[in-house]
Write a protein that binds this DNA or RNA. Structure first.
Lengths: 215, 215
DNA sequence: CAGATTTCGTTAGAGGTTATCAGGGAGCGT
DNA sequence: ACGCTCCCTGATAACCTCTAACGAAATCTG
């Protein structure tokens, strides 16, 4: 709450350069993956020489972390926008797929291969929790006639991740299934594992969504 | 079939050094991820200096490709071994989870974030097809009383990926669900997205497996 | 308005990486 | 035992991240 919109022209310029750096970084990641991101190449594209970027980011890791943060926030925004009217889970699902297809590497920035040592900063974890809250909202209250099952019983006793959300166990189970099943179909599609297989990934995605909604 | 066991001591030595290089590479990847794999570091560990490794691998990419190939073959072997007795899908699922938990980074070598430009060699694609065949075997014939659904109808007309396998559409649908749902639960678990959430990933995995088997 | 101070971007350089190349030495096969 | 092939080393080039020191420009302050 301390620094909102930049007051001085100095911070204004600074913010703009930071944004431009991230722009180039996003482009690089989209075309060659996050591991190919080069600060030097970005500097060259911007007409300045190497170390100048260290005025704006402490290093490569911080830049990537910032992009991961942006990706999380972007997903959270897309989710909230899709949930705005009446908390329809199908709408959330399509928002998720659209968001993922718009920039696959951004999806992998969030859900891709983790670096063994890396631990996300607290604020990113908080955005992830916000996404989860939106998801829980969409499944609360759950439709009647729910089967239950061992997982639902287990979740009834292990609901730390729901925080103080009033979602009943059935909603927890559905939200979890929504997350894992759609991620399963989506990540394999984005990674190209369906490419030579001949079927339409959208049909699979729709079927997985139905499996979450109808049962 | 041409070159089985090395005949000369020359090729024998060569194969052993290649294996040792891969051993160190695997270790590095397991502890720091594939992006942190350094040929130089491997050479240093083996007591030789840098460029010597280029006698055994054309470069970093070929080494990684080889490790990906090994990972695929390892998964295919684990799958076939689990399917040997009576083609039980639950056995396959547990074999998959055990295989993944034994070395998460190896799992991500197969199912992790793809490099945009990269295209897997044909022999790797063939191993992937072999895995799929094992999976289709396990679901053929499918249990009776199957619901069908839009996905199953779609797959009935788009079964290129099944090759000449006699699996009926219901088996295709189940095999696909097995793959995507278990991958969804497993990859999120391995990536640590469930870490602070308080529930047991094994219970989720079992529930997802049930969802594939029972419906 | 003028001086002090902060900030920016540069060059230089250390230390890391992949990868190529030329040459010496060791082991293998005949 | 000789010749040949293959292995390994050191040098080198071209990248990379990141630090340090310096000059220049813009901002803030008296």
């Amino acid at each position: 709450m301390a620094e909102k919109s930049p007051q001085g022209p100095r911070e204004r310029y600074r913010a703009q350069v930071r944004a431009e750096i991230k722009e180039h970084a996003r482009e690089q990641i989209a075309t060659a993956g996050a591991s190919a991101l080069s600060l030097n190449a970005i500097a060259k594209q911007m007409g300045m020489s190497g170390p100048a970027l260290y005025r704006y980011f402490a290093g490569r890791d911080e830049l990537i972390t910032e992009l991961v943060r942006d990706a999380y926030r972007s997903l959270a925004d897309a989710f909230r926008a899709a949930a705005a009217p009446g908390a329809d889970a199908a709408g959330l699902a399509h928002a998720l797929r659209d968001w993922a297809l718009a920039d696959p590497q951004r999806y992998f920035l969030v859900y891709g291969t983790p670096v063994p040592g890396y631990h996300a900063p607290d604020d990113i974890t908080r955005i992830a929790a916000e996404i989860m809250t939106t998801l829980l909202d969409a499944f609360t209250p759950p439709p009647p006639g729910d089967s239950g099952g061992p997982l639902q019983e287990h979740l009834a006793g292990h609901r730390d991740w729901a925080g103080d959300h009033p979602a009943p166990p059935a909603a927890l189970r559905r939200a979890l299934a929504f997350w894992t099943r759609l991620h399963g179909a989506l990540s394999l599609e984005l990674a190209g594992h369906f490419s030579g297989m001949g079927f339409d990934p959208a049909v699979l995605f729709a079927a997985e969504l139905d499996s979450v909604l109808e049962r």
